[in-house]
């Protein structure tokens, strides 16, 4: 048990608290961090609301809706492509007694899911969130609705994902881990020093010792360990994979990948050996190089293991053709 809800552990969830303490509709500032990957915009209108996204790799994004004087406050938030995200919307966020926390479930045609994976910009329209805590079903009184709030998407949005392993929602109930309250003491696990109320602080309970923000992603693999909305070390997350939803057979790619042990992934060398990525788009240089070494050299000794057709295919892939 805790004495006061605001006695948070260190700086954990400070931004969430900042959001909770800020006035409703306080300006629409977004703490979205940017990466070099493509981003899409998630937008819509809501009653005065804080919108939070809990995403793959422990990434965290948050924005407030903007008070435009109507009952429908607009918001928009940038989300990198390819990320699985849980979306949570909170009304009356500045008052723990009256706030309503609504994890969102998305309906798309005949399917539904609790995880969004944007393939393009997505406009949700008006999301009629409940603002009155007496009107929600909340069996443990923690302010979180028991069943996720359903939002219907356009049929062609293709934005609902169902990851087979969802670290951010360990029990798969649609309520992200940070808004779970294991011991029903009125404090979310992410706020609670002793989630299971066993008298031992979480940092002495093995299953929590390595997850500061308790979002379910271990600190070592959490790109935003303190959920401050900024990636902890952007230098470790350069251009990442481009999501590929359909496999296409590429003979050259598999062959060229066999060069990477010595020449680096995708032909980009990290040592003083040559990069073999041919930015000019001219595959003939790679083929020439493969042909010119004697077998007394390790390059020549490797090269004779590949047929002319194979050399052509891998060179074309490495030169982007």
């Amino acid at each position: 048990m805790k004495t006061r809800i605001h006695s948070l552990k260190g700086s954990v969830l400070v931004p969430v608290m900042a959001a909770l303490l800020s006035a409703c509709g306080g300006g629409g500032d977004s703490t979205t961090s940017s990466t070099s990957t493509t981003s899409y915009t998630l937008s819509g209108t809501v009653p005065g609301t804080v919108i939070e996204l809990f995403c793959t790799g422990g990434l965290y994004y948050r924005t407030n809706s903007t008070d435009n004087g109507t009952s429908e406050h607009p918001f928009s938030i940038q989300v990198p492509s390819g990320l699985d995200c849980h979306v949570v919307m909170t009304t009356n966020e500045d008052d723990t007694a009256t706030r309503v926390i609504s994890p969102i479930r998305f309906i798309e045609g005949t399917t539904s899911g609790d995880v969004l994976n944007l393939k393009g910009d997505l406009a949700l329209g008006f999301v009629a969130l409940e603002m009155d805590p007496s009107k929600i079903i909340d069996s443990n009184g923690d302010g979180v609705i028991d069943e996720p709030f359903e939002v219907t998407l356009p049929d062609d949005a293709e934005a609902v994902a169902d990851p087979s392993y969802d670290a951010l929602d360990s029990d798969g109930d649609g309520i992200p881990n940070v808004y779970e309250d294991d011991d029903n003491d009125g404090y979310f696990n992410s706020e609670d020093d002793d989630d299971d109320n066993d008298g031992y602080p979480d940092d002495q309970d093995e299953d929590h010792a390595n997850d500061q923000d308790e979002d379910g992603v271990e600190d070592d693999y959490d790109r935003d360990v303190d959920n401050d909305g900024y990636e902890d070390d952007t230098t470790t997350t350069p251009d990442t994979t481009t999501p590929v939803t359909e496999y296409t057979v590429q003979k050259g790619r598999l062959l060229a990948s066999q060069c990477a042990q010595c020449h680096g992934t995708d032909g980009y060398s990290t040592t003083s050996w040559d990069s073999i990525r041919e930015e000019s788009g001219d595959s003939s240089e790679i083929i020439e190089e493969m042909n010119e070494y004697s077998t007394a050299h390790i390059m020549g000794a490797q090269a004779i293991g590949y047929t002319d057709e194979e050399r052509q295919a891998l060179a074309e892939w490495l030169s982007g053709n």
Binding site: G109, T110, T111, S112, G113, E147, A161, D162, S164
Partner: peptide, 28 residues
């Protein structure tokens, strides 16, 4: 996984229909 849970419960697709009018998205 949700699919596995449904399998264990022997409920299959009908389970989600109890609470939702829709099925969960296909699991990756």
């Amino acid at each position: 996984s949700r699919r596995h849970l449904l399998k264990l419960l022997g409920l299959g697709v009908g389970f989600s229909a109890l609470k939702h009018t829709t099925a969960f998205a296909a699991e990756r």
